[in-house]
Computed example of a mutant assay.
Amino acid sequence: MKPILELLPLLSRPRQIAIIMHQKPDADAMGSSLALFHYFQLKHHQVAVVSPTLYPDFLKWMPGAKEVIIYELHPEKATEALQKAEIIFCMDFNAFHRARPADAALAQSAGIKVIIDHHLQPEPVFEYGLSDVQASSTAELVYEVIIGWGDKSLINNEIAQCIYAGTMTDTGSFRFAATSARVHRMVADLMEHGLRHEPIHQAIYDNFLENRLRFLGYVLSNRMEVFYEYNAALITVPASDVRKFNLSSGDTEGLVNYPLSIQGIKLSALMVENHQEIRISLRSKGDFDVNEFARKYFNGGGHLNAAGGRSTDSLEATVARFKKALEENKALLEKPLKNP
């Protein structure tokens, strides 16, 4: 894979560009994609943004969100955008299957594939890219790419809002270990140039319906199991709960983090049953590697302390597999967390 800086000569004249994010996009996937979208528009390229699936309602405020083509709603339009593109930017994912159900259209498109991502072990399917596992977020990398291409002056308020939203959420409001000095320097720079951070926080975290709050109370009381012998916890959300509380895309966002507030818990898992599949989110503290845990047991991956996976087994069978995995990793989970 060639460094993304070497792509610059190809962008010296207007191009047909497509930007695609991973399925079930979070604020980082949306923010990094839309920041790049606004940047390329300022450079007079023809740009289309594709999301494989619907994105959460709390991201609809993002500048440019209405321009995103949803593949699962408009597959022909999204496929056409990918087929016409001379260059395709793959944002916040490192393997084509993470773009399901648009993965086949992506793989079959003739455009140059470019990755901007911060996940471990990218697949060798990209011709150019920036893959930095030390970065807090893909949004942070977009900021650095724009600067690296010599266009810092083009970072306007729309781009800054998208970058901030992606970085804020992927760092857990700047509390995760990936919140480096370079993150704070970037945010300071954005704020010095006029970014207002409070409205973005409110738009993302204070913008849910009543049913979501009632769901949180219910699920924490009735669907959370704590395994103190493994310093782990599990929350399960069966399809019946999804229907009962009329959950929308994004309503389970952040739920996996709640058990980590329990003293001594170093591994938290969330399983959500939907569309004949169990979607699994994993979070950890310290040196317990949920990236490897997800890859080994749940056909997934991610970061050291944040990863995801999936299962096509029943919810009961998937829970049983998780409990067996806890036993196999007991020695690692028993290690106490280091004090500050």
Rank of each mutant, 00 (worst) to 15 (best):
I155T: 04
K335G: 00
L247Q: 08
D241N: 13
L36A: 01
H22K: 09
V290T: 13
R321P: 00
D241P: 00
Q16G: 00
V242L: 11
N339A: 14
I17G: 01
S221L: 10
I235G: 05
L10T: 00
R283N: 04
A203S: 15
G31F: 06
A178G: 08
R98Y: 11
S180L: 03
V47H: 02
D26L: 03
T79P: 08
V319W: 06
I70E: 12
G150F: 04
H197S: 15
Q16C: 00
F298Y: 11
Y228T: 13
F208E: 11
I147L: 12
G64C: 09
P75M: 06
D103W: 07
D151I: 02
L73G: 00
F93I: 05
P259N: 11
G250S: 12
L267M: 08
E192H: 10
S12T: 11
G172W: 02
D57K: 14
S268K: 01
E72S: 15
R279L: 09
S173Y: 04
D57F: 11
E140D: 00
E198Y: 11
K338Y: 12
S261I: 00
F288D: 02
F227R: 02
A325K: 09
Y218G: 02
E123N: 02
Y230V: 02
H118L: 10
D26G: 10
L42G: 12
Y218Q: 09
K338M: 12
D170Y: 09
L130S: 03
V68M: 09
R196W: 07
A177W: 00
L209E: 15
K296L: 13
S240Y: 07
A139Y: 01
R175T: 15
P75Y: 09
T138W: 05
R212Y: 05
E253H: 03
F322R: 02
V142Q: 02
F40P: 06
K324S: 14
K296S: 11
L130N: 01
P122H: 12
A29V: 07
A325P: 07
I4M: 05
A48M: 06
Y128M: 11
K335Q: 14
M30N: 07
L11C: 08
V226N: 10
A27P: 12
L8N: 05
F37A: 01
E334V: 07
F176M: 05
D241T: 09
E334I: 12
E273W: 03
